[in-house]
């Protein structure tokens, strides 16, 4: 099965599991504080905001924050691709539009052309190892401003401000409101307002995830420390390095705008990687892998036998 489909299933499974939780009172919480009874992994932004807003050190929030930081260091932004319900909702928008292919393309034709013509030429890149030396550094973007703004606002006004509009929270709030409407006849304008606000966020702000989401900003900052499950190219089989052809599929398919072959040309730094495995699957020669531990780059010039041995040693 394609990982894209597995990712839909995992995100849907999270929604279904939490919905079952709402109906059965088993105490698993929502994505904002998932866990079992009084043990919960809090949303890091929620944990930070609540402590800043109440000017109190909440032990459980602090522990949850540490756990989340460790998780982010281990799996980067995997939450975005595998669990977050927002991409699921954006998929609904894709179904509604007449040209879904256009919606999902991460870069327009002109952007791709511009990227290809910039910096070093393909020929240069294939012979010299420039992609390993010049990794694009993560830059501050609008998401980081919103992260800062929401934390600042929590300090000033004394409540977790972003939680009011967080699309993840609104998703589960909508589900709960529907359950309450049909289960208990709880009529309220919230049943209109909450899903509407959610729809506005994911439909009007098409680039919510990459331009606005402060949670994504938080994860990308810590994602810089992530070394596990990074897309790694085997230069011996990669079409560009092995045969000198102009492939670039891995860079085109990446929803985060990373080009694993040419990090220096990427629109985003590697810390944005959500481990979605699109690049692994698109690679025509299966040269791209996401190994658990980082593997030293194999050299094109090295003889195959020696290189293989070297890599085995390193990976054990």
């Amino acid at each position: 099965m394609k990982t894209a489909n597995i990712r839909i299933i995992t995100a849907l499974a999270a929604v279904v599991l939490i919905t079952i939780g709402f109906v059965t009172n088993i105490g698993i919480g929502t994505v904002s504080a998932i866990g079992w009874l009084d043990i919960s992994i809090l949303c890091p932004l929620g944990a930070l905001s609540t402590m800043l807003a109440s000017k109190m050190l909440v032990p459980r929030a602090l522990i949850a924050l540490i756990i989340v930081v460790v998780l982010i260091v281990l799996v980067g932004k995997a939450f975005c691709a595998w669990i977050c319900p927002v991409p699921l909702l954006q998929r609904i928008r894709g179904f509604l539009s007449k040209n879904p292919a256009k919606q999902t393309a991460s870069l327009s034709a002109s952007e791709t052309k511009a990227l290809k013509s910039s910096s070093c030429s393909t020929a240069e890149c294939s012979t010299t190892d420039c992609s390993s030396c010049a990794e694009k550094r993560g830059t501050i973007d609008s998401r980081h401003f919103i992260l800062g703004g929401s934390l600042l606002s929590a300090v000033i006004f004394g409540f977790p401000v972003f939680c009011l509009v967080c699309p993840i929270g609104l998703t589960f709030a909508s589900i709960l409101l529907v359950i309450r409407l049909f289960g208990g006849g709880d009529m309220t304008w919230s049943i209109i307002v909450v899903p509407l606000l959610l729809a506005v966020e994911v439909i009007f702000f098409r680039k919510w995830c990459s331009k606005l989401c402060p949670l994504s900003a938080f994860m990308s900052i810590l994602g810089k420390l992530n070394r596990t499950f990074r897309p790694t190219i085997n230069d011996k089989t990669c079409l560009e390095t092995a045969q000198g052809t102009d492939c670039g599929l891995c860079g085109q398919v990446c929803p985060e705008g990373i080009d694993p072959r040419h990090p220096e040309r990427s629109a985003s730094s590697m810390c944005e990687c959500s481990k979605c495995r699109e690049c692994v699957e698109v690679c025509p020669t299966k040269a791209l892998k996401m190994p658990l531990l980082p593997i030293a780059r194999s050299k094109v010039t090295a003889p195959p036998g020696k290189d293989g041995g070297e890599r085995q040693e390193l990976s054990t």
Partner: peptide, 26 residues
Amino acid sequence: LLSACIHCEKCYEICPRNVIAPAHIE
């Protein structure tokens, strides 16, 4: 309550008698 609540909905979910409800926009 207002300073700390992150609207995580755990309390509604756990309530064995289903008496905790999310407040309305009203």
